[in-house]
């Protein structure tokens, strides 16, 4: 499939989902709003994730691109999608590095396709950085994980 925009399943280095990795034709946010059959979309840092909310049911993959790791807009995009009930794959792509993995995971990313493959051992350690967490975020929704404040008052 000619798919110059999105990452391919081979490029996904870490995935925290049980379902099959499907190979989707990834389109831009603008195209996604026009094409009623698009099932995969890529969000760039300047895109408003909320324009996708009417189409979440048909989306199976949302890629959030981090052209530079220091641009944190993608974290908000991820949470907005999860808060709206998106349950499909949320893949962080681009300049994804070891030290951003734990926060990305907390914001709802469940797949990671870094530009440059990451050291597996360093990544495993990074995902496990925080035994507990202060804030509510995607990982605490639906009772999946308790915040420190909730544990204190259990």
């Amino acid at each position: 499939m000619d798919n110059p925009l999105g990452t391919s399943p081979d490029e996904v280095q870490f995935r925290f989902r049980e379902d099959e990795v499907a190979d989707h034709a990834t389109v831009t946010v603008d195209s996604c709003c026009d094409q009623t059959n698009a099932t995969a979309v890529r969000i760039e840092p300047g895109d408003d994730a909320r324009v996708l909310l009417p189409f979440l049911d048909r989306l199976a993959l949302v890629e959030v691109n981090f052209p530079g790791f220091a641009d944190g807009r993608g974290y908000s995009a991820a949470r907005i999608l999860r808060e709206a009930g998106y349950t499909g794959e949320l893949r962080a792509v681009g300049d994804v590095l070891i030290d951003q993995l734990s926060h990305m995971r907390r914001c709802g990313f469940d797949a990671f396709a870094p530009d440059k493959p990451l050291d597996e051992e360093d990544a495993a350690r990074a995902f496990a950085t925080w035994g507990n967490v202060y804030q509510r975020a995607d990982d605490t929704s639906g009772g999946r994980r308790k915040t420190i404040a909730e544990l204190r008052h259990d």
Partner: peptide
């Protein structure tokens, strides 16, 4: 302080 420490969404403002 607790809320803002290691906030997952607001570390790359």
């Amino acid at each position: 302080r607790q809320w803002s420490s290691f906030h997952p969404e607001f570390t790359y403002l």
